[in-house]
Simulated scan of single mutants.
Amino acid sequence: MGSGREFIPTAHALEGRKVVLVDLRGHGRSTRIPSDLSRDAFVSDVAAVIDAVTEGGTTGPVDLVGQSMGGHTAMLVGAAHPEKVRRLVLLEVDEGNGSPEDHADLGEWLRAWPVPFANREAAIAHLGDDPLSQAWANDLEQRADGLHPRFDADVMVETIRAVAVPRWEEWESVSAPTLAVYAKGGMFTAEQKDRFISRGAQVTRVDLAGGSHDAHLDAFDEWVAALSGFVAA
C-alpha cells in the first residue's frame, strides 16, 4: 500500500549512486486500477523501467532492491531477467505466503478507513503514529474534499493474493548475488527465514537487531548499513 516515497531517505543515503524509485502498478502515482494484477505484469513493468534507465541494457545491469511485496517482485525479476540484475537486495521477503483469511482481513481493514481524511492529523489519528502509518499519511492524495489513499482496496487484496503463491522454482533459479535482510520484529518465523535462505543460490543474510517488517522506516540506520555495504562490495 506504500509507494517509492518510502525509500527517498534510503536513496539519499546511497550517495554517489543513481537511484530510481518505482511506484508499482496500483501503488503511488502509477495506474490506480490496472487491468492485470498478475505477478508477470509486475515483473514486466520493472523490466521495462530497467530497460529505460539502462538504455536497453547498454549501460549494464542494475542492483535491484525491494521490500515485502516489492521484494517479491524484485526476486521474480531476477529470475526472469538475469541479464538485467547485477545484485539483488531483499528486505523482509520470502518465496510467497498468506492465507485467504489474511487477505479478507486486509480488505476489511482498508475499506474501513474513514476517507476522505480532513487533513494529515486526522489520518494519523486513525492510522497511528508509527513510522509506517506516518509514511501512509504522507503519501495521501489531496483532493477537493480531503485526503485519499493512492490505492484501491480491492486492487491491494488481489495483488497480495498473487504474492501468496509460493515461487520456489523462481527463487532457486536466481543467479545474482543476493542480500536477504530480516528485522528482529519482522513477519517471518525463524523456520521460514532459514528455509528461504537455504534454497537460494548466492545469498548473504543479515539479521537486524531491531525494526519491524518495515525496517527501512523503523530500523533505518541498520538497514542502510547493510544495503550500502553490500552494493559497494
Rank of each mutant, 00 (worst) to 15 (best):
S3R: 15
R5M: 10
R5P: 02
I8P: 05
L14V: 06
V22D: 00
G28E: 12
R29P: 01
S30G: 04
S30T: 02
P34R: 00
S35E: 01
S35G: 08
D36Y: 01
L37R: 08
L37I: 02
F42R: 00
V43G: 02
D45M: 05
V46P: 00
V46T: 09
A47R: 04
A47P: 07
A48R: 04
I50E: 02
D51W: 07
D51C: 11
D51V: 02
T54E: 02
T58Y: 05
P61F: 11
D63A: 02
G66V: 07
Q67H: 12
S68F: 00
V77G: 06
A80E: 08
A80P: 06
P82Y: 10
K84V: 03
V85H: 00
V85P: 05
R86G: 09
L88F: 10
L88C: 08
L91Q: 09
E92M: 07
E95A: 15
E95Y: 12
P100Q: 12
P100M: 14
E101F: 04
E101R: 15
D102W: 04
H103Q: 12
H103M: 15
A104I: 11
D105W: 11
G107R: 11
W109Q: 12
L110E: 04
L110H: 03
R111S: 08
R111V: 07
A112D: 13
W113C: 08
A118V: 13
N119F: 06
A123S: 11
H126R: 15
L127E: 11
L127Y: 07
G128F: 12
D129L: 05
L132V: 14
A135R: 04
W136C: 09
W136F: 14
N138M: 13
L140Q: 12
L140C: 02
E141K: 13
D145S: 13
D145F: 09
G146S: 13
G146V: 14
G146C: 14
L147Q: 08
L147R: 09
H148V: 14
H148F: 14
R150F: 06
R150L: 06
D152G: 03
D154G: 11
D154L: 09
V155A: 06
M156A: 08
E158A: 15
T159C: 10
R161N: 12
A162H: 04
V165S: 04
W168D: 11
E170N: 14
E170Y: 01
W171F: 11
W171K: 00
E172H: 00
S173W: 00
S175Y: 01
A176E: 02
P177K: 11
P177S: 11
A180R: 09
Y182C: 06
K184R: 10
M187H: 10
Q192F: 13
K193N: 08
K193Y: 07
D194C: 07
F196M: 12
F196P: 03
R199G: 06
V203G: 04
T204D: 12
R205E: 13
R205A: 14
D207E: 13
A209W: 14
G210D: 10
G210T: 12
G211M: 07
G211T: 08
S212V: 07
S212K: 05
D214S: 15
F220A: 13
F220Q: 11
D221M: 10
E222W: 05
V224M: 13
A226P: 02
S228H: 12
G229D: 14
F230E: 09
F230P: 09
V231M: 07
A232F: 03
A232R: 15
A232D: 15
